[in-house]
């Protein structure tokens, strides 16, 4: 899991997640996540219909452990619906969804799925605007989230350290005590990524992370996502092709609710089917 991958030297040291040992922070290991076949997510024959419209049509997709996968596709291809299915927001009409070898996602509620180790960043940044940046991260922190525990919860020094680490990683250290509502759009996106990091998920679903970001912010986001892969599995949905090119090794193209093509970015871009439905359209 901890083998540095080819791009790690491109990442500035301050953005690289520090090595973790067990005593610094009690790592939240989701019980029962079995990665023995090196596959973290299995989606098979997933179909979702809304009033007769098939948002997902027998979608089959596998994500390997530690992989950074980009998912692209024209509007309405079913990208967001797919994330909704994985995180328990939408129940499919048919099909199966497994997290690792043993966890059946279709029988679980949203909080259960989140606790099992799947984190999600939404397309529109949704942070808790009335809470400070620090409190946002505190709320997202992995651990037991039952009511009575929360009433008497106190941050341990290790947990404080972890929050500071993440604040550093997402570049919001100076805004620690500021209300999240006053942050800029890009900063909110980063805060949300920081909240994902606090959740310590095995699988991160990231929906359009660079929408509305400046080129510099986009670059830093790319670096951050690259640094996450390997330790976590990351699925990124994005429209920005330059961004996808800069981070992805494996790209999946969705079209009308099912997989149209899969491969490296070059393979995919030269696929005539893909060119026809997506890349052939004028880029925006």
């Amino acid at each position: 899991m901890n083998v540095p991958h080819a791009f790690s030297r491109l990442i500035p040291a301050r953005l690289r997640p520090p090595p973790r040992s067990g005593d610094v922070f009690e790592r939240h290991n989701p019980p029962g996540l079995d990665l023995s076949h090196n596959t973290v997510l299995y989606l098979e024959d997933i179909t979702v219909s809304f009033d007769g419209f098939r948002a997902l049509n027998k979608l089959t997709l596998y994500v390997e452990a530690g992989e950074l996968r980009c998912i692209i596709g024209p509007n309405g291809a079913g990208k967001t619906t797919m994330m909704d299915v994985i995180t328990g927001k939408t129940r499919p009409d048919s099909g199966t969804a497994w997290f690792g070898q043993t966890i059946d996602l279709l029988g679980m509620s949203e909080p259960q799925i989140a606790q099992a180790g799947i984190g999600r960043k939404f397309q529109k940044p949704t942070v808790f605007e009335q809470h400070t940046v620090f409190e946002n991260l505190e709320l997202a922190m992995a651990g037991d989230k039952s009511v009575w525990k929360m009433l008497f919860a106190k941050l341990s020094p290790a947990q404080l350290l972890r929050i500071d680490e993440v604040l550093e990683t997402i570049g919001l250290k100076e805004h620690r005590g500021a209300l999240a509502g006053v942050l800029s759009h890009g900063q909110k996106q980063w805060l949300e990524i920081g909240m994902l990091l606090m959740q310590e998920p095995q699988l991160l679903l990231v929906d359009e992370p660079v929408a509305g970001m400046t080129p510099q912010e986009t670059e830093r986001t790319a670096e951050l996502l690259l640094s996450l892969a390997g330790k976590h599995s990351v699925v990124v949905v994005e429209h920005d092709m330059d961004f996808v090119r800069s981070i992805a090794r494996q790209v999946t193209v969705l079209h009308e609710g099912s997989v149209l093509a899969e491969g490296t970015i070059d393979e995919v871009q030269n696929d005539p089917k893909v060119v026809e439905v997506y890349l052939g359209e004028p880029r925006c």
């Binding site: 995180t87 927001k89 509620s109 949203e110 909080p111 989140a114 606790q115 984190g119 999600r120 939404f122 949704t126 808790f128 605007e129 009335q130 809470h131 709320l139 997202a140 992995a142 989230k145 039952s146 909240m195 959740q199």
Partner: peptide
């Protein structure tokens, strides 16, 4: 402030 978001970070709202 954001009920469904709270659910997605693992709280049983």
């Amino acid at each position: 402030d954001a009920e469904s978001r709270t659910r997605f970070i693992g709280y049983r709202v």
